[in-house]
């Protein structure tokens, strides 16, 4: 239990669709431990997105319990949950979800400002992270001035801003070309391997899922398989991580 970051205990999530109740998740119990690289896979409508929202504490279950670092999220005050989420989880979304009116630097600074980190420290850290993802020369660019891959790298820098224990990636390569997608996966892989981050990736692409150590397969709202990925990582992957500042 010590290493468990997120635990689902008999979690149900039900949506009301007009007159009909749809169970998106049915009695799901699962744990995500520190240092894992897990992929949640499954076909469309299997409950991946619902699971992703619950893992990210963006939603609360209809029934059952979810524990984030040992604390039941249903019992937390909104502000406490927001603060805990901000400190513990970094999000990488499929559509990047950067704030369009802010520059790359401001986007990365935002979570630090929300956590009321000292301005000087925050700026230094944001610049370092942007350098880590190879965007030192683009810090004053707004999202509209960046390519998809660059936006996703800003998104990763933002996810890392508060040094979270978990990186939650929702179809992170979904909007990227294959080369950029590989670059991004290499980056996530390095964060897992070198930085010891816990990565939870939601994807429908089994090819991508192969890079994860653990596979959780969903079907019709239920976990149908949860196991270690025995397949070796694709040797074709070159970790072409851009040069970073020391």
């Amino acid at each position: 239990m010590e290493n468990t970051l997120i635990a689902f205990r008999n979690v149900w999530k039900t949506y009301q669709m007009g007159e009909v109740q749809v169970n998106a998740l049915k009695a799901v119990s699962v744990k995500f431990r520190k240092g894992e690289f897990a992929a949640i896979v499954g076909p469309s409508g299997s409950g991946k997105s619902t699971m992703m929202n619950l893992v990210g504490c963006l939603d609360i279950p209809t029934k059952g319990e979810i524990f984030l670092k040992g604390r039941n999220i249903a019992w937390l005050e909104e502000s406490d949950l927001a603060a805990l989420r901000g400190r513990t989880i970094g999000f990488v979304f499929q559509q990047y979800n950067l704030i369009p009116g802010m520059t790359a630097l401001e986007n990365v600074l935002l979570p630090l400002e929300i956590q009321e980190i000292d301005d000087g420290v925050a700026e230094k850290r944001a610049k370092k992270l942007l350098a880590l993802v190879g965007l030192s020369d683009k810090i004053q660019h707004k999202p509209s001035q960046l390519s998809g891959g660059q936006q996703q790298r800003v998104s990763i820098a933002r996810a890392l801003a508060c040094n979270p224990e978990i990186i939650l990636a929702d179809e992170p390569t979904g909007a990227l070309d294959s080369v950029t997608g590989k670059e991004l996966l290499a980056m996530l892989h390095r964060l897992w391997k070198e930085e010891g981050k816990t990565i939870v990736m939601v994807t429908h692409d089994l090819h991508l899922a192969r890079y994860a150590r653990r596979h959780i397969e969903l079907k019709d709202g239920k976990i149908v398989r949860d196991g270690i990925n025995e397949e070796k990582l694709d040797p074709e992957i070159h970790y072409e991580v851009p040069e970073t500042e020391a």
Binding site: G56, L58, E78, S79, A82, A83, R85, G86, R87, F91, N97, L98, I99, P100, L110, P111, I114, Q115, R158, C162
Partner: peptide
């Protein structure tokens, strides 16, 4: 709305 969602996801409180 979407920006509000993003800000909340990265830790913004209702009060903020």
């Amino acid at each position: 709305t979407k920006e509000i969602g993003i800000m909340k996801a990265i830790g913004a409180r209702n009060r903020d």
